[in-house]
Simulated scan of single mutants.
Amino acid sequence: MPVIAVTGHLDLAPATSRAVRTALDALLDPYPAAELTGVSCLAPGADTLFADAVLARGGRLVAVLPGPGHPGPGATAAERAAFDRLRAAAHRVVALPAPELGPAAYVAANEHLLLLADRLVAVWDGGPGNGPGGTADMVAAARAAGLPVDVLWPPGSTRTGRRAP
């Protein structure tokens, strides 16, 4: 049973979100629903799009939460609603014990994702990232661990520049 984890940008422009969802659907298409497990931190943007794509196919979702305050105080009402919906739909929820959200919590969550995964999907523009726990850091860790990495960044994709919650 393939276990596919996700990492990616939080600040996808609306048109990019639609293009990424189409690309995710195509990437997941070869996997029979009964054999598909997706692993996500349920963050806004790429994580949420991936989790929705896995569930829409009938796959199983494992949520790895970096800490008890996830998705964070800066999350919008829509982001919180999506998080709550996906957490409720998850087959399993792994809540890590970080006392507060920050780089160390995100690094720990990424490490846990990689321990569970056979493959990583990165919704990533290829940029240097925001340091430990970010998308670029996760891609580098997956590659160092020998995991296959599928980078999705459809032509014309853009980011909004909004900071993560």
Rank of each mutant, 00 (worst) to 15 (best):
A33P: 09
G129P: 03
A88P: 02
G133A: 03
L101K: 06
V123E: 04
G134H: 05
A95D: 14
G134M: 07
A15G: 06
E79R: 00
G134T: 05
L101A: 04
T22V: 11
R18I: 11
D118S: 15
W124N: 01
P99Y: 15
L152S: 13
R143S: 11
T158C: 10
A105G: 04
R143L: 14
V39R: 06
A15E: 15
A108Q: 09
R80W: 11
A105W: 08
A136L: 04
L152D: 12
D125G: 00
A51W: 02
D137T: 07
E100Y: 05
A51I: 03
H91T: 08
H70D: 05
A51K: 00
P71T: 02
R80V: 12
D137F: 14
L114G: 12
G59C: 07
A23H: 10
G69W: 12
D118L: 13
V54L: 00
A82R: 04
P14G: 02
N110D: 13
A108V: 06
L114Y: 15
G74V: 00
P32M: 06
E100R: 14
V121R: 06
P99V: 15
V64E: 09
V39W: 05
A105M: 10
L113Q: 14
A104P: 04
P71N: 01
A43M: 02
